[in-house]
């Protein structure tokens, strides 16, 4: 990390550093309190911190009114199926919108950009009716099937990346006898691994975090995902067992944070910051 950046004149002193650290602490605090809340003792428990953690997390896993393992399985299935489809379909579309030259391409791209601005909730009611017509209510399909047609954000991300690959490579491959699909499969995709990984990560997180979709499309408990199932831990027979709620919440937040910790660069570089360069 270069110590010498932009706005740094004489202000390298102790005060700005202190303010910065306090800000960091403030942003970390809710997560710290979440974990601390998850190891509060259950009523009547006299175990130590680790024992209480074991008790609470085991209670969440085995809770009879909720079904955590089932919710986890559903969340993982949807995340896996939707990510696979999202990356594959978006890559094909992005290739058509970046490395092929055809009349109407820019119009399609403009429509795609415009859909990024449509708030999701606006269309969720008619989408539900559509899924019902298709006989998909009562299954997990409404949450992963649309991903197999790609998504505007992923297409945009991949297209911007594909545009940076030199055209000479396509032409050399064609001279060697590659078909259009060959250029896509043997030239563009292998060179785009970081962008494909970014698109996959964003879809995993978007799918894992989705609340409105599961709320609307999933109509019985066996199908619930974690964000929806989480609500089951609230206020059972009177007072809310906060230690269990926070333990369950921690278990839903942990996977995203783990992915983030391992792949931070892709996330921060892919998010929005890239979207401004054109």
């Amino acid at each position: 990390m270069p110590r010498d950046r932009r706005d740094n004149t004489g202000g390298r002193g102790a005060w700005p550093t202190l303010v910065l650290w306090l800000c960091g602490a403030a942003f970390a605090l809710p997560l710290v309190w979440m974990v601390a809340g998850s190891v509060r003792p259950a009523p009547g428990s006299s175990a130590g911190v680790l024992g209480r953690a074991a008790e609470n997390y085991a209670a969440v896993w085995a809770d009879p009114t909720a079904n955590f393992p089932r919710y986890l399985r559903n969340s993982l299935l949807i995340a896996g199926a939707s990510t696979l489809g999202m990356v594959a379909a978006s890559a094909v579309t992005a290739f058509g919108l970046s490395r092929l030259c055809w009349r109407g391409r820019d119009a399609v791209f403009l429509v795609l950009l415009a859909t990024l601005m449509i708030p999701g909730p606006v269309l969720v009611a008619p989408q539900y009716l559509l899924m019902r017509e298709l006989g998909l209510i009562g299954t997990l399909a409404p949450l992963w099937l649309p991903a197999w047609f790609g998504g505007a954000f992923s297409v945009f991300l991949l297209r911007q990346f594909f545009l940076t690959i030199p055209r000479d490579l396509d032409e050399a491959a064609r001279l060697d006898g590659c078909s259009t699909f060959g250029v896509f499969w043997r030239v563009v995709l292998p060179l785009s691994k970081p962008a494909l990984a970014s698109a996959a990560l964003f879809q995993v997180v978007a799918s894992w975090n989705d609340f409105l979709g599961p709320l609307v499309f999933l109509n019985h408990r066996e199908l619930y995902t974690l964000p929806l199932g989480l609500q089951q831990y609230q206020s059972q027979h009177g007072g809310t067992p906060w230690n269990l709620v926070m333990a369950a919440t921690t278990l839903t937040v942990l996977p995203v944070m783990a992915i983030y910790a391992l792949t931070r660069r892709w996330f921060v570089e892919g998010s929005g910051a890239e979207g401004l360069k054109e």
Partner: peptide, 26 residues
């Protein structure tokens, strides 16, 4: 503040971004 090259900027940046990834329901 994060772009001043202060000590710990990288960590604070990571912490500030982290909550945007937490599931809204969580």
């Amino acid at each position: 503040l994060l772009e001043r090259g202060l000590r710990g900027s990288g960590l604070v940046r990571a912490i500030v971004f982290a909550p945007t990834l937490a599931p809204p329901a969580s």
